[in-house]
Design a protein around this nucleic acid. Structure first.
Lengths: 332, 332
DNA sequence: AGATATTTTGCAACCGGTTGCAAAACTGAA
DNA sequence: TTCAGTTTTGCAACCGGTTGCAAAATATCT
């Protein structure tokens, strides 16, 4: 139904190649020719079929954006930044929701069928081999928010979760808490594992600190709330490092809902610094993860892989810092 | 790089057509042939190129999912439901972020270049002609969360915003508020306009009710908070119907941040019933919009348009209802 | 003006599939 | 076995573009 190259060529009285050339930049066309073709094209309302051209050029400008975190508000920020960043570079995000998908092979096949130029896996809760499977299939991939590895198998852009665990521990110790705990995300998530490791490592340095840890089922409000309610049944710790902000907010809700106060009775520190953490009625002390840099860097990396697909896998880590708000007692 | 039809055909020692047929269902292939081809295909790791086939079939199974609401947490739920619903039907969402885009023509051109089979415009804050522009361009389109019109120009799936305005007004009156106000979203959004209209209409029926209204700049926490802070400088109303939940939460934050209490000093009712509204530390009384039905219905509609693109435009409206929580004073 | 260098253009093959059509291979019945 | 009817297969053209190559056109220089 929409006009094709041929239609334009006929109307302008030139060859199809000529029309093609006026629409691919860097091609050799005289001014006269360009004028003629453009006239015919606008008269017909022609615009080239990106998919057809992808057949010969081998480039679709499609980027798979795959994630399984559709219940964590921070991912709205993530999608916003990714989609805009990709669009700004003329790339199109093909969104893949892995929430109820177990088999990576399925998504890989699908993304290959659509000849995506690259894939961004934005998740820390997918199985570790997931991103690698794309690489093995020859698809350029970067794993945003993934696990740092000294000899990475795929490009990873994110933060040093172990260091974040240490940072949280230091902050709690500094404020004079002695009985602390980690309320993590899902135990299988690499981010949870790493944050726990750092937390234990650092608290282990002070002999007078007692530490516990448990895991929530997901990085979600309800999971955080449910897990904190279970902790409250028992003797809770003085302060919790929660796996991320949304878990913290769930925990916060459980605590205040039980008639206790934060930070009066229990202290909380989160991770991410999502927009909501700064809302006055939440006002969460948290560790800020620079998601905008992470995403910019991820996009830059995937773009560079379009030119050079075999670029050697690299890990890019961005520093985090504590954002002090109102959920920890003041430093003594 | 990935194997093609031709590779499979050669290895299996059959024609390319035969291979094509084994991968398109409904085509005539003998069992023997199918076996041979499938063997060669799996050995080579072949899977058909969806884009190449789209050239001849005219179907890409790509659906443009366009929105400009990337700061309203409810849209994470929206994206989750849309992406899963589309995936379940073998369709792929091509996400378009219109946040800083003014010219619909640009997105339309882009989506046509990618030959999307259809477009879902998920927004109530885009200019009214936006969705129609797709239709005019011959692209099947449904406008989810759009404005109801008695003779619609495009398919619209959503709620009756005017009725929601009335519903909010009735609820406030029923609870004995006399001095009420509407704190709307952006004035240009059709949803804002319609909710206001219903609200004024219904409050106008009771002569002893005084009404005011103002608008926030966006459907976002910060906009709601800022606008409510301005109201608090003056003499605030007894209760506010806020344009949506995220505005309500912003307003709530402004109120409690100013040392006033909800619902003690000021009552609030929102709209949407996003997940967060039910969080214990927010506990917002609100009007529930059935987004899951809206999205299911939108997808069903776009799917039916794939078969019959000229289906006569239709408006589908789903009923809303008040969800009572803790931000309005109890009925007297 | 003529000769040469450079740019512009069209031809035709190709990208990875699909599909109408007719030939080939089967099937069942006589 | 033969023959008509049905199913399966391959040929070749096509979908909407791109691109190497050589011919045509234009520019540059004596």
């Amino acid at each position: 139904m929409p006009p094709t190259l041929k239609d334009v060529a006929e109307r302008a009285g030139v060859s199809r190649a000529a029309v093609s050339r006026t629409f691919t930049d860097g091609a050799s066309v005289s001014l006269k020719m360009r004028r003629k073709v453009e006239k015919a094209a606008t008269e017909l309302g022609y615009s080239p079929n990106a998919l057809a051209s992808s057949l010969t050029t081998g480039r679709t400008k499609l980027i798979g954006l795959v994630s399984n975190n559709f219940h964590n508000p921070i991912f709205l920020e993530v999608f916003d930044l990714f989609t805009r960043g990709l669009q700004d570079r003329g790339l199109r995000p093909l969104l893949v929701n892995l929430s109820d998908e177990t088999d990576p092979a399925h998504s890989i096949r699908m993304l290959r069928q659509y000849s995506v130029d690259g894939v961004v896996v934005a998740s820390s809760t997918l199985p570790p081999g997931f991103a690698k499977a794309f690489r093995d299939a020859g698809v350029p991939v970067v794993n945003s928010f993934g696990r740092y590895a000294s000899s990475p198998e795929v490009h990873v852009v994110g933060i040093d979760n172990v260091e974040c665990g240490r940072m949280a521990a230091r902050e709690l110790v500094r404020r004079g808490y002695h009985n602390v705990a980690f309320l993590g995300g899902p135990e299988t998530a690499t981010s949870t594992q790493d944050r726990l490791r750092g937390f234990l490592e650092e608290t282990g340095l002070s002999p007078d600190i007692s530490v516990r840890y448990t895991f929530a089922d997901a990085y979600s409000f309800n999971a955080g709330r449910a897990e904190m309610l279970r902790r409250l049944d028992d003797t809770p710790a003085e302060a919790y490092f929660c796996g991320d902000d949304v878990l913290s907010i769930g925990a916060l809700s459980a605590i205040t809902g039980s008639g206790l106060s934060v930070p009066g009775d229990i202290g909380l520190i989160g991770l991410n610094d999502m927009e909501m953490a700064g809302w006055e009625n939440i006002n969460l002390t948290t560790i800020r993860q620079p998601i905008s840099q992470i995403i910019d860097s991820s996009i830059e990396l995937i773009v560079s892989m379009l030119a050079n697909p075999d670029r050697y896998p690299e890990a890019r880590l961005f520093p985090c810092r504590v954002i002090e708000r109102g959920t920890l007692k003041p430093v003594v």
